Amino acid sequence: MIEELLPATAASAETFGDPAGARLFPEEEAEVAHAVDKRRREFTGGRWCAHRALRELGVPVTPIRRGTRGAPQWPDGVVGAITHCAGYRGAAVARTGELSSVGIDAEPSSPLPDGVLEVVSLAAERAHLRRLAAEEPQLNWDRLLFSAKESIYKAWYPLTAEWLGFEDAELHFSPGAFTAKLAKTAHLPDRELDTFTGRWIVRDGLVLTAVTVS
């Protein structure tokens, strides 16, 4: 599913369970040597997807270690993101000559726990979600907002190495897409960037979102 949200220049892979026979590089194995089983399975499935996506991109597969704030450390000349939730693991990558950054996120298509929406959203966004829910009540718009903000952060951090809080992005949704006005600016070599755009899909009990910066 994730490929539906990405441009043709990106490569991706996903799995809807723990892939049989998935193996980690020793350097990756060390990252989860003392992790609980759930975390180990998530990490292994995510790296399995990342390795497959790199092969699809035509890039030699090397260990993908965790960097600052847990961001995956991709091979030189590659940008990407990894996500996982119950029943899903996915990864997306692209060459730096094609995209500047990629962010993806997967969530279960269920309401957020009580009190979480107020923490991750702005008042204007909550009013926006109420209007959307009145039109399409079958969608869990609060979970979609959360996922979109996770994708935004994953695309933002590699560009800036700076924290971006939930309150620093104001989202507006349209069918299959969203726009985020940022309270901060990413200073790129060729431009100043304070707006991100992304795409979303809800299917088979999952919410998937993706942000790419060209």
Rank of each mutant, 00 (worst) to 15 (best):
R66W: 00
P75N: 08
E162F: 08
L57A: 15
F196G: 10
L117Y: 11
T212E: 05
A30W: 02
T195R: 15
R69T: 02
P26Y: 09
D142Q: 11
E3F: 02
E98M: 02
D76L: 10
Y88M: 08
S100T: 04
A30F: 06
L144S: 07
Y157G: 08
D105V: 01
P158R: 04
E31P: 01
L145M: 07
M1R: 12
E28T: 11
G205M: 00
L99I: 01
V116Q: 11
W163V: 14
A155F: 09
Y88D: 08
A148Q: 03
D142T: 01
V59C: 15
V36L: 10
K154R: 01
F173Q: 10
Q138K: 10
R47E: 06
K38H: 10
G45Y: 00
L159M: 12
T209P: 00
A161F: 11
T197M: 08
R203L: 00
A91I: 00
V120Y: 11
F25A: 14
T62K: 13
G67L: 06
T212G: 03
P72I: 05
S12G: 09
G21F: 13
K184T: 13
L159K: 03
G58L: 02
L6D: 07
E135V: 13
L112P: 14
E118F: 04
G77C: 09
W48M: 02
E167L: 13
G198T: 04
R40I: 09
D168W: 01
L117P: 13
L171G: 09
D37I: 01
A86H: 14
F25P: 07
W74C: 10
A123I: 10
P175M: 05
P75V: 00
F25S: 11
R65W: 01
T197F: 04
A155P: 15
P175F: 04
T15M: 06
T160H: 06
L6G: 10
E28K: 11
E56K: 14
G77K: 09
R23M: 13
F173E: 11
F173G: 12
D168L: 01
F166M: 06
S109H: 15
V36N: 14
V93H: 08
A133C: 07
G176N: 04
K38S: 13
E192N: 14
P189W: 02
K149I: 00
V61G: 08
W48E: 10
E28I: 06
A134I: 00
A30E: 15
D76T: 12
G17N: 07
T160F: 11
I2S: 10
A169M: 02
G58P: 08
